[in-house]
């Protein structure tokens, strides 16, 4: 059985005034798969995810959700279609407890009141189902590590019905160990049948978890590969612009 495609772009493009931020980018995300979007700073990664998550509208090509062409008008519109975005600067309140953050803006109600017992229980269960080891859901989010915070944000998106998870550089600000923690939750989300768009500039993070790799450079696609078509080494070389790297090595060599 081939996995069902949820999101697809066909030759999508976006201009800001006279700047061509993105042109002719085609990609797809299927349920239970991870599509990695790789590129250096300014490659068009953030423009692409902003189109996918409804912040910007594309002005060329087609954007398809469940095989039908759409034009998302807002992040809320995207959310209603099950497309959730976890940004690098997460929407979390450091002084509030994990469970309060988990349900912020979508608090379960019991009569007039906020059903705090349910909120605590569900938050604990959901985090555990994602394999997230939070000692105590009553602790303030500010006391969690960066990786744990990303994980809570991912678990929250999963719980509130996301089918596609767009992760904006979730590992870039983290140490090696913390990044590993987050990669594990990306794999968990994938195993639960979510489609994941994983934006990163680190091929070492992308390769182990990705099923498809989309490489962007200067707003254009410079290659789309399945996992079988490319090795980690080739990906790294492509990503760094192999020739450029060799040139740099040459330049930096001791006289």
């Amino acid at each position: 059985m081939t996995p069902t495609t949820i999101l697809e772009t066909r030759g999508i493009g976006k201009t800001f005034g006279s700047v061509l931020a993105l042109r002719e980018v085609s990609m797809s995300v299927a349920a239970g798969q991870v599509t990695c979007v790789l590129g250096d700073n300014g490659a068009g990664k953030s423009t692409l995810i902003k189109i996918l998550s409804g912040v910007h509208q594309h002005d060329a090509g087609a954007y398809l959700v469940d095989g039908r062409e759409v034009r998302l008008t807002s992040p809320r519109d995207a959310l209603e279609r099950g497309i959730a975005t976890v940004y690098q600067d997460l929407a979390m309140i450091p002084l509030m407890s994990v469970w309060r953050n988990f349900f912020l803006g979508s608090e379960p109600r019991m009569g007039l009141s906020f059903d705090v017992r349910k909120a605590r229980r569900v938050a604990r269960e959901e985090l555990r189902a994602m394999g997230i080891d939070i000692r105590d859901v009553d602790q303030p989010v500010g006391t969690l590590s960066g990786g744990e915070r990303q994980s809570v944000a991912i678990a929250r998106a999963v719980y509130f019905g996301a089918r596609v998870l767009i992760l904006d550089e979730p590992t870039s600000a983290l140490g090696v160990k913390q990044a590993g923690v987050v990669l594990r939750y990306i794999a968990r989300a994938r195993d639960r049948g979510l489609g994941v768009v994983f934006i990163t500039h680190n091929p070492h993070h992308a390769y182990p978890v990705g099923d498809r790799f989309l490489l962007l450079n200067r707003g254009a696609c410079i290659g789309e590969y399945g996992k079988g078509d490319i090795t980690a080494h080739e990906l790294t070389a492509l990503m760094a612009g192999g020739a450029e790297l060799e040139e740099l090595a040459h330049e930096l060599r001791r006289e």
């Binding site: 979390m92 309140i93 450091p94 002084l95 509030m96 309060r100 349900f103 912020l104 803006g105 608090e107 109600r109 007039l112 009141s113 906020f114 705090v116």
Partner: peptide, 14 residues
């Protein structure tokens, strides 16, 4: 114990 309470902490926190 109310949703408004959660919002009060939140708007003050971030």
């Amino acid at each position: 114990r109310s949703r408004a309470g959660n919002w009060i902490f939140a708007v003050g926190g971030n």
